[in-house]
Amino acid sequence: MENQAHSSDQSTKGGWLFFIAGFIGSLILGWVIFPMALYSSQPQPMNFNHALHMNPDKVDGIEGDTETEKCLFCHQLRDDGTFAGIPRLEKCMECHDDPESPLGSTPEEKDFLTRYVAEEKEIPWLSYYRQPDCVYFPHIAHVKMGKVDCRTCHGDHGKLEDLPAYRANRLTGYSIKIWGERISGLKFNTWDRMKMDDCAECHTKKGHEENNACFVCHK
């Protein structure tokens, strides 16, 4: 009996350290390793400087009172109201029309001209913000009719000088921008997450609860 008590004492001493080690180990696993392992990271085929292109002094045609209007210059709404998304090469070539004469002086542009413009090859962009196939998201209903800023969902993407790597969830295939960038799941900005609840939250807040019906956003 004595012996047993003694040994019990022995193990209790510092035993909490094991608990804490396990606890901390899990924290590291859950907060650091897991997010790194869950998401792949893929560079975009080339860089694109949004900040530069949003400058009306630099780019002809990027005008408008609001940032949204500027965005829409390249990320167009088509005549039938659908959203064109990432512009095609054709749009880029409205300005970058001659592969021989770059408009700026960056090596990226030269690379772009030789690899894509000269070859008339589409740039295989990776889309940060693509919703899954079951979702129908009309930009026009939000941007034009609902007067929602691009920033509300896309944050300061338009101010970036460098394109971040595209990161996709290895399990679901969703982009990290849909949900995962703030791994805690907490939401401080409207653009932190783009899940169904986030859509519904905004609809409710704006008094459009009727738009939370299933068939408004699902197809």
Binding site: L77, A141, K144, F215
Partner: peptide, 21 residues
Amino acid sequence: CTFCHHRLMRAKTRAYAEDRR
């Protein structure tokens, strides 16, 4: 059958493009 619900969305989207609700 969904009564081709996507066609309702298509029509609405087009209406929005033409400034109609």
